[in-house]
């Protein structure tokens, strides 16, 4: 039953993504690409690109995108509900506890332990996207001819610009889309 699977997958994504922003990315990749194969890694990367360029949290954007892709509008709605439900319950409980205890050492400790973990998981997910970008769907190999030089150049330039000038990330993505797109279309 596809609706139940979508609901359970996004429920897990909503339940285990701590740390905001990109923290949900490795979990979404795990459920959507690795476990269920609902999206290819390329489609998933497109989804991250789209999410970064549109308003709204990555998890909600993904729920809608994947849900629509797999089971139309009902799929999108069910995935979104699944994604929102766990944090709604959790945050309400926390608000109630917070009034009673004010300071919750256990939660603070868990979060402190998760911070380096989240970095590692985003790095890991980012690395699989980078390998796809530079080497293509067949994955990493040693031969220099399997490297996409345009992608390498765009990645290095993009990262340099982001570190040095701290522009809006949307500009970097649009820039690399326009320049890269022109290169792929015009170069032999």
């Amino acid at each position: 039953m596809i609706y139940l699977q979508l609901f359970l997958s996004f429920f897990q994504i909503g339940l285990f993504s701590f740390g905001g922003g990109m923290a949900a990315m490795p979990l979404i990749q795990n459920q959507v690409v690795d476990i269920h194969g609902w999206l290819t890694l390329t489609e998933f990367t497109d989804l991250i690109t789209i999410s970064e360029m549109t308003p709204g949290p990555i998890a909600i954007n993904s729920a809608t995108f994947v849900g629509t892709h797999i089971a139309g509008l009902p799929g999108a709605l069910i995935s979104t509900v699944g994604c929102v439900l766990p944090s709604t319950v959790f945050v309400s409980m926390l608000a109630w506890l917070y009034r009673k205890y004010r300071e919750l050492a256990v939660i603070q400790g868990a979060l402190a332990g998760l911070r380096p973990t989240i970095v590692a998981l985003i790095l890991s997910a980012g690395l699989s996207i980078l390998v796809l970008t530079i080497w293509g769907p067949d994955g990493f190999s040693w031969g220099i001819q399997s490297v996409d030089p345009v992608a390498v150049l765009l990645f290095v330039t993009g990262l340099f610009v982001l570190r040095k000038f701290k522009p809006n990330p949307i500009l970097v993505m649009v820039g690399s889309g326009v320049i890269g797109g022109a290169c792929y279309l015009l170069l032999p």
Binding site: M22, T49, R115, L132, G180
Partner: peptide
């Protein structure tokens, strides 16, 4: 698809920028 392929490099850069800052 050519533009999206170009954007993949951009989004990789954005992810690594986030990772570097967080790390």
């Amino acid at each position: 698809s050519a533009v999206l392929k170009g954007m993949m490099a951009g989004v990789s850069a954005v992810i690594f920028d986030v990772v570097i800052t967080m790390a």
